[in-house]
Each structure stands twice: as C-alpha cells, then as structure tokens.
C-alpha cells in the first residue's frame, strides 16, 4: 500500500463512521426536525470524505471532477429535501420536540 492508499483508507473509514452517526441520529433523535439535522449533515460529510478518498485513487482529473460533481449534486438534493420535508412537517403541525 502506498501512502495515498493509507490516506484513502483512513478517509473511507471516517466517512463510513459519519454515515453510522447519521443512522444513529435517525434512530435516536426525538422528532423529524432533529432527525433531519442528523441525516443531512452527517451523511453529507460522510459522502464528502468517501469522495475525497476515491479522488486520491482516481486515475484521471476528469474522474476527480466527476466525483466532486456527484458530491455537489447530493449536497444540493440533501439541503433542498431537508428544507422541503421540515417545511411540510411544520405546515402539517408536527410539533417541535423540546427537552
């Protein structure tokens, strides 16, 4: 394994742990708003780290740009969806959990 491989492996494992954090938050957090916090932020960081790890392994610059493009699209989808879902929930009178 090259030094690049070790860095990639570390990033991949960290990224996966963020996905785990997102899922734990999804299961543990008390209402839909807090679950959205967990899912949106943790999963996007997780995917970002995985994309970074794969970019190190990429054989061409075009491949790197494509990876970044994929990440940006998921970011856009994630933040838009979390806004839409929370807005709909508020309109439908889903209460905000307070301590």
């Amino acid at each position: 394994m090259t030094p690049g491989d070790y860095l990639s492996a570390a990033l991949l494992i960290m990224g996966s742990l963020f996905f785990l954090a997102g899922t734990i938050g999804l299961l543990r957090f008390p209402d839909v708003y807090t679950r959205l916090h967990a899912l949106t932020k943790a999963d996007n960081v997780g995917l970002g780290l995985i994309v970074a790890a794969l970019a190190i392994q990429a054989s061409s610059w075009a491949g790197v740009v494509k990876l970044v493009l994929i990440w940006l699209l998921v970011l856009l989808a994630g933040s838009s969806v979390s806004h839409l879902v929370s807005r709909s929930a508020l309109h439908r009178g889903v209460d905000v959990w307070k301590g």
């Binding site: 996905f19 999804l26 679950r35 959205l36 999963d43 989808a77 994630g78 879902v85 439908r92």
Partner: peptide, 14 residues
C-alpha cells in the same frame, strides 16, 4: 409521522 417516512428519500439518495 409521514415526514419521518420521507426521510427515506434522503437516506437512500446519499
């Protein structure tokens, strides 16, 4: 709530 079910879209996507 239905909103919780919609989290599926988010979860699956990423």
């Amino acid at each position: 709530t239905a909103a919780d079910r919609m989290l599926a879209a988010q979860l699956f996507g990423t």
